[in-house]
């Protein structure tokens, strides 16, 4: 199988911060907002270079979403960032009315998504945000897998006109995608071609899927691995083409199985090409405190969980 090399662990939020620094230099319409989490979002360099284009909102996320909507009126491209929990569930109606329904060109950039936020526990570990955001008409939902891809995605959404939810995380994870990749919204990436099973993964689970595929190969299972960084709009063609070849699928995400990537794919398959599917996702539960690795293990979100799901789904073909 194709080899992917970890170029050195890094956090996806730093990919966001690095891209913001670039956007600060390249796009005068880009403005940044933050709700008292500048250090966590890695945007201090943007602020240092563009103090007039940064708005410290304080601990007031609802106000931040409204101000971001207003800034678009006048041609600004606001990147409103905070933790994923406070960027979605806390301010759902503000996003719904002032941004999504109003069709505003706001980029909601959410760090510390999912269970790998770790020790802070379930109050901060949102596992429902993909579902919340994908339900909003017109909202693009992106969950890149590593530092390089998060940086590329951040740059790409500045050129897209319309509301976007960009989800990334806290821990340092393998950085294995190309440095200067072109990011195409809504385009799934084929990481490894295989014939026995399709594994589609998003976010931090993509690396786990690659690790699982390596182990499976040693067991004689040929796994196709697809990185779906854009959950909405979903690259339906890529998924259908793959399952028509492999006949079964495992979907992997750091999110509740209700409302996530797996749910979107099951809806697609049910209507277009019924296929056995297993979900590597949290099972309608809240998280808890622990290290990211411990939590990935306990909640069934690592390479081992993916391997087991593959073996289960292949029996259902």
């Amino acid at each position: 199988m194709k080899k992917y090399i970890d170029q050195g662990k890094n956090d996806t939020r730093s990919g966001y911060g690095a891209a913001m620094t670039e956007l600060g230099r390249s796009n005068p319409n880009v403005v940044a907002l933050c709700a008292d989490l500048v250090a966590s979002l890695k945007i201090q360099p943007f602020i240092d270079e563009n103090p007039d284009r940064f708005f410290q909102i304080g601990i007031a996320e609802a106000n931040m979403m409204g101000i971001a909507a207003g800034l678009t009126i006048g041609g600004k491209i606001p990147f409103a960032s905070t933790f994923a929990n406070f960027a979605t569930g806390r301010v759902y109606d503000q996003i719904r009315q002032s941004i999504a329904y109003s069709g505003k060109n706001v980029k909601i950039c959410a760090s510390h998504a999912g269970i790998t936020l770790g020790e802070d526990g379930a109050t901060h570990q949102i596992l429902e945000d993909i579902g919340l955001m994908k339900m909003l008409p017109g909202m693009v939902v992106i969950n890149p897998c590593d530092y390089n891809q998060t940086k590329a995605a951040t740059l790409a959404i500045a050129d897209y006109v319309g509301p976007v939810y960009l989800r990334f995380g806290r821990p340092k994870v393998a950085n294995f995608t190309p440095v200067d990749q072109k990011f195409e919204i809504g385009k799934a990436l084929m990481l490894n071609e295989g014939s026995d099973v399709t594994i589609v993964a998003t976010g931090h689970l993509v690396w786990e899927a690659l690790k699982a595929a390596e182990t499976l190969e040693q067991q004689g299972v040929s796994a196709e691995v697809i990185n779906i960084h854009t959950i909405k709009p979903l690259d339906e063609e890529a998924v259908l083409k793959s399952v028509k070849k492999t006949g079964c699928i495992v979907t992997c995400e750091e999110h509740n199985y209700l409302g996530g990537l797996g749910e979107s794919i099951s809806g697609l398959l049910a209507s277009q090409h019924p296929t056995p599917q297993e979900f590597v996702a949290t099972k309608d539960t809240f998280g808890e405190s622990g290290t990211p690795e411990q939590l990935m293990e306990k909640y069934g979100l690592n390479n081992k969980a993916i391997e087991n799901a593959v073996l289960r789904v292949m029996k259902r073909k």
Binding site: F55, A62, N63, M64, M65, G66, I67, A68, A69, G70, L71, T72, I73, G74, G75, K76, P78, Q94, S98
Partner: peptide
């Protein structure tokens, strides 16, 4: 909030 954003723009 929206008005503030427009005013800042």
């Amino acid at each position: 909030s929206v008005g503030i954003g427009a005013a800042l723009a």
